[in-house]
Design a protein around this nucleic acid. Structure first.
Lengths: 165, 165
DNA sequence: TATTGTTATACTCTATAACTATA
DNA sequence: TATAGTTATAGAGTATAACAATA
């Protein structure tokens, strides 16, 4: 039940939605990274798990394109996951330049852990809201994401933020 | 008017609010930085303008504490703004170790430009929502921000995001 | 001895270019 | 010649330590 009496006064200056989204979003990303850290993973790692789970057999190029990660960086990330036995590079018969990336059994186990962590993270972040309000929030943000042309399920990361020098 | 018929089926899996906040927030931060770039400013610069406007005479320590910017980095940012005539370091009579930071006339002019850019940014980001929905969104996010202990008006930036290595 | 502003340095992430092996 | 993966390198942001002047 919001107060609706603003008669005669200039519209009350509220913090802009854009600023709040950036502020809370940055906080959310930091908190998620903190929850991932005990698993020995970073947010980009989690993105790789999620995308490979939905699209097994992707090449590194394709995976990097989806996640917005440059090939030169993706190599390192995949190396780390392969070294720990979560991802494997399978040779492709038709094109011997590229690999087909798959989650291993251990990889799928870790994917479950990531999912659990993500749900805990969501619950903690939205603690101030009831279930209906969380759906409202997700709906509003989902509409913005769609109108802005954001790819569902892909966190854009941060490109060039510095603008001064 | 949302569909409300989910009888018997498991609750439909929606993208979590936490993920959407991080995704849209990252996008918003990138877009804001792009709008700031033609002014020769970065988001941290804009934060300095905003905080100094509300709290003239702050020391660098105090300013850095509010913005979550380390002294070693803040020196460089303030140097840049001082060199361009937007900020001045005034000697303080009582403590000759520190400066009192103030916006100059040109600085206040640039502050107006930043405000204009911020309003354009907000309008563009929320294009998918009507005025009432924007207020709803701001209200929901504001409650999360408060419950999570975020300082009003302060973008936390991104601390240690990597967790793997 | 502690604090303010500053400098120096290391580490991470981003971005570009160049190399190799295939195609 | 073009592409997939890889390596090397440069640039920005973040973090820590150390220093000079002052408290």
């Amino acid at each position: 039940m919001q107060e609706r009496s603003n008669l005669g006064r200039p519209p009350r200056r509220r913090t802009s939605a854009a600023f709040l989204v950036a502020q809370v979003g940055s906080h959310a990303a930091t908190k998620f990274a903190e929850r991932l850290a005990p698993l020995g993973l970073s947010p980009p790692h989690a993105g790789i798990f999620r995308v490979l789970s939905a699209n097994p057999g992707l090449s590194q190029q394709a995976l990097g394109a989806i996640l917005g990660i440059l090939p030169s960086r993706l190599v390192i990330l995949v190396d780390e996951l392969e070294k720990r036995g979560f991802v494997e590079r399978r040779d492709t018969p038709d094109d011997r330049r590229s690999y087909a990336l798959h989650l291993t059994g251990n990889g799928n186990g870790m994917l479950d852990n990531i999912g659990r962590v993500a749900r805990e993270h969501d619950a903690a972040l939205c603690a101030a809201l009831n279930e209906k309000e969380r759906e409202q929030l997700a709906s509003l943000l989902g509409r913005i994401a769609e109108e802005q042309g954001l790819t569902p399920g892909v966190h854009p990361g941060f490109k060039r933020l510095g603008g001064s020098k």
